[in-house]
Simulated scan of single mutants.
Amino acid sequence: MSAETACLSQIRVVLSHTSHPGNIGSTARAMKTMGITRLYLVNPKEFPSEVATSLASSADDVLNNAIVVDSIEQALAGTTMQVAMTARRRELVQPLQTPRQLVPEIIAEARNGGEVALVFGAETSGLTIDEVQLCNRLVTIPTNPDYSSLNLSQAVQVLAYELRATLLDDVSYLEEKRDLADHDYVERFFVHLEETLIQIGFLKPHAPKRLMPRLRRLFQRARLEREEVDILRGVCRAAVQYDRKPLPGPSKAD
């Protein structure tokens, strides 16, 4: 875990009364992909479970370290911020916020040493009023008002993603490390290219117009790698050799 994401260790996901073990496994997977590993389960209907392990997809460590408790109070013990995921207003005092609005406060709390619980209810009914009232923040995912149904693990994934994206909005580690051609290497290619175009009759030395400047601009935009330059020069050599081949003679039928 990098220094930027170290505060995620202060965040736990709490699932209350989960009825299907597959949702526990999928939640573990959603958590681990975003760097959150602490899972609390309040009275799960079935756990541990082979179904949960199967859907965790190599997030077995999250499942193996999951803490199973009897009550929501036990799951929230020691936390300083409790974030209830809810899709209904229910005339509660706390204002509803979206994940993107609330995430900066969650991160600030975790970075200051606070313990944060992200609390999710049962699949069909969500959190009860009593469970929500034990939390000091409410969050809801803005969805299509005509169809707002989200799977439990999907809801966890959305909130976990917003946390990680805010902490480390950088995917440069996935980029291929390019061996770019240096200036001299590219200039030798341009010389070779111009000679080739003249030899095959595509470039007229007496009337070059702006062909070479335009080709220069094209290749310079691409920021060529050394291997790409080698390929292009190979094409030039092949073009010249092909141009020098004699045309086939007439067939016997002619």
Rank of each mutant, 00 (worst) to 15 (best):
Q94P: 09
R90T: 11
I72L: 15
G113D: 00
N65M: 08
T53I: 14
A122V: 05
V116C: 00
A52L: 04
K45P: 10
A66Y: 03
E46A: 12
T128V: 08
F47K: 01
S57W: 11
F47H: 08
M85Y: 11
E109G: 04
R89E: 15
A108Y: 06
R100G: 13
E105N: 14
S58T: 10
A56W: 07
V119C: 02
V93Y: 11
L63E: 00
E105D: 15
V103C: 10
A87P: 03
L118F: 07
A52T: 04
L76M: 02
L118P: 12
N65G: 08
V119K: 04
T98C: 06
D70K: 14
T80A: 01
Q82H: 05
V93L: 06
R88W: 07
L127S: 02
E131C: 02
E131H: 07
A75T: 09
A117C: 02
P104L: 13
N112T: 07
D61H: 12
F120S: 08
A56L: 10
A108L: 10
Q97H: 15
A75S: 04
V83W: 05
L55G: 07
Q74K: 13
L96S: 09
A122T: 09
V51W: 08
V116P: 07
S58E: 08
V103F: 09
G114W: 00
V103T: 15
T80G: 11
E105R: 15
Q74Y: 05
D61K: 07
F120A: 07
G114M: 00
T86I: 13
P104M: 09
V68I: 02
F47Y: 02
A117L: 03
T124A: 14
L127H: 06
V132E: 11
V68T: 08
S71Q: 06
P99M: 13
T98D: 09
I106S: 01
